[in-house]
C-alpha cells in the first residue's frame, strides 16, 4: 500500500483529493506544509499565527478543491489561498501584529562563514525596510519559488508591476551592499 502511494503522481493524488480522499489530502498537506508555513511566517512574523493561517489555508483548499483546474500546478494555487488568508488576517488584526524584525532577530538564521553572516544581516535589514508590497513579491519569488506569473496571480497585481517591484527591491539591496563595502 505504501509502495503504491509512493509511485502516485501528484496529478493522481490531486484527483483522489478532489474525490474526497482524506489520505490524498494528508499527502499534499505534508508535501506543502513547510513552504506554506515559511511564507506565512515571513509575511506575519509570528509562529503561532503563521501556523494557524496555514491550517486555515488547507481547510479552504479542502473546501474549494472542486474548483481547482486539473492539470495546473497545485503549489501556486495553495500559496494564493494562503496569501489571501494572511492578507485578510492582517486587515482584521493590523494593530496586534508582531513585527517581522523582532521575530527574525529572535530566530537568527544558522550560517557558517562570517561573510554569510554579514550578508545575511544586510539582507535582513533591507528586506525589513522594504515597502510591504515589495517585500511580499520578493518573498513569493525567491523564498516560495513562484514564477513571475504565479507571483502576480498570488498577490493580484499585474505582472509588469510585480517585475518592477522586484527590480526596485533588488536595486535597493545592491545599493546598500555597495554602500556598506565603501565604509
Amino acid at each position: 500500500m505504501i509502495e503504491q502511494e509512493a509511485v502516485l503522481t501528484e496529478a493522481e493524488i490531486i484527483r483522489r483529493f478532489q474525490a474526497g480522499d482524506r489520505e490524498a489530502f494528508r499527502t499534499l498537506v505534508e508535501k506543502y506544509q513547510n513552504v506554506l508555513y515559511g511564507t506565512a511566517y515571513l509575511m506575519i512574523g509570528n509562529r503561532m499565527v503563521a501556523e494557524d493561517q496555514v491550517q486555515e489555508a488547507f481547510l479552504s483548499a479542502w473546501k474549494g478543491i472542486g474548483s481547482f483546474r486539473t492539470g495546473c500546478p497545485l503549489k501556486p494555487w495553495l500559496i494564493r489561498t494562503l496569501v489571501n488568508k494572511v492578507l485578510s488576517y492582517r486587515r482584521a488584526n493590523s494593530k496586534t501584529i508582531i513585527s517581522l524584525d523582532t521575530e527574525l532577530v529572535a530566530d537568527p538564521v544558522a550560517v557558517d562563514p562570517v561573510e554569510d553572516i554579514e550578508l545575511s544581516d544586510q539582507l535582513q535589514r533591507v528586506l525589513q525596510n522594504l515597502p510591504e508590497e515589495q517585500r511580499q513579491v520578493v518573498l513569493l519569488r525567491y523564498f516560495t519559488g513562484l514564477s513571475l506569473a504565479e507571483t502576480s496571480a498570488a498577490v493580484g497585481r499585474r505582472q509588469g508591476t510585480v517585475k518592477s517591484q522586484i527590480h526596485r527591491a533588488l536595486e535597493q539591496l545592491k545599493n546598500l551592499i555597495e554602500h556598506d563595502k565603501r565604509q
Binding site: Q33, N34, F58, L123, L170, L173, K174
Partner: peptide
C-alpha cells in the same frame, strides 16, 4: 549576483522554518 544572494538567504531561512509535526492531527 544579488538575485543569487537573495535566493541563498531565503534557502537558509527555509531550512530553519519548519512547521510543527503535529500540524496534521490539529488540521484533521
Amino acid at each position: 549576483n544579488i538575485e543569487r544572494k537573495v535566493q541563498k538567504f531565503f534557502q537558509k531561512q527555509a531550512d530553519s522554518l519548519k512547521v510543527n509535526k503535529d500540524l496534521w492531527p490539529k488540521l484533521e
